[in-house]
Simulated assay, not measured.
Amino acid sequence: MFGFGKKKDKKATKEVIEETVLTEEQKEELLRSISEKKEEIDNVDGEEQANIYEEIGIAFSTLGEVDNAIDALEKSIKTKKSVGDGYKTLLKLYNKKRAEAAKANDEESLQLYLKKIDQMMQVSKDVIRGVK
């Protein structure tokens, strides 16, 4: 009735991160948007700055530029702790980097990304508790 004791379908439970296929126009638009937002970033602060970093990070992630995405999203979380789309994207990117490090038997990078994932869990706890 409730499915207790049943074997889970591994294909159904395995998370698949799909790469978005972008047209050249879409790529150009994202790059243009990133450029415009980078110009805005120094003219704002606080939550507005965090939101712009988040938008830049998500755009870089969509373009497949993982390291640039991580950099921008880390700045967003550092500026303002939140658990929105930027948080989720950053966590996915950390998991992707962790998996790559594990596959390459790169123990140093593996530990780095495990530590970063732990830090993200702390951010989540802080947000829930209202800690700034």
Rank of each mutant, 00 (worst) to 15 (best):
F60D: 01
S33Y: 12
I77N: 01
K125F: 14
V123N: 06
E36P: 03
K14C: 08
L110S: 09
M1V: 09
V131H: 12
G130T: 02
D85Y: 15
L22A: 02
G3K: 02
D126K: 04
Y94R: 01
E65C: 08
S33F: 11
I41G: 04
D45T: 08
A50E: 04
E108Y: 11
N43K: 15
L93C: 06
E55H: 03
K27M: 14
F4G: 04
K97C: 05
V21N: 06
K37I: 00
N95Y: 05
D42C: 08
K96Q: 12
D45G: 10
D106I: 02
N51F: 09
S61G: 12
A12L: 15
A59V: 04
D71K: 15
I117H: 01
E65I: 03
K11Y: 15
S124N: 14
A99H: 10
G86D: 06
E54T: 11
T79C: 06
K81M: 12
D126Q: 07
N105L: 10
L73T: 08
A102S: 11
S76E: 02
K92L: 12
A102R: 11
T20P: 07
Y87K: 02
Y53H: 10
E100T: 08
G57H: 05
Q26V: 06
K132L: 03
E100M: 12
I58P: 04
G46H: 01
T23S: 12
G84R: 03
G86H: 00
G57Q: 04
Q111W: 10
K14E: 13
D9E: 08
E36I: 07
A69T: 00
I77H: 02
L30H: 00
Y94I: 01
A59S: 13
M120D: 00
I17M: 14
E36R: 08
V83A: 00
A50G: 01
R129P: 07
E19R: 10
L91Q: 10
D45S: 15
D126N: 12
E15Q: 11
V44S: 01
F60R: 00
K88A: 07
E65Q: 14
Q119S: 14
N68V: 05
G130W: 03
T23I: 02
A101M: 01
A104F: 01
E54M: 14
T79L: 10
T20Y: 15
Q26T: 05
K88E: 10
I56Y: 04
A72S: 11
K14N: 09
D126I: 04
V131F: 15
E107T: 09
A12F: 15
D71M: 12
D42H: 11
N105E: 15
S33R: 14
A104K: 11
N43E: 15
V131G: 04
E74W: 07
A99D: 14
L30E: 06
T20I: 13
Q49R: 13
M120R: 00
A101H: 00
Y87Q: 03
Y113V: 00
E24V: 07
E54F: 11
K6Q: 15
Q111P: 02
K78Q: 10
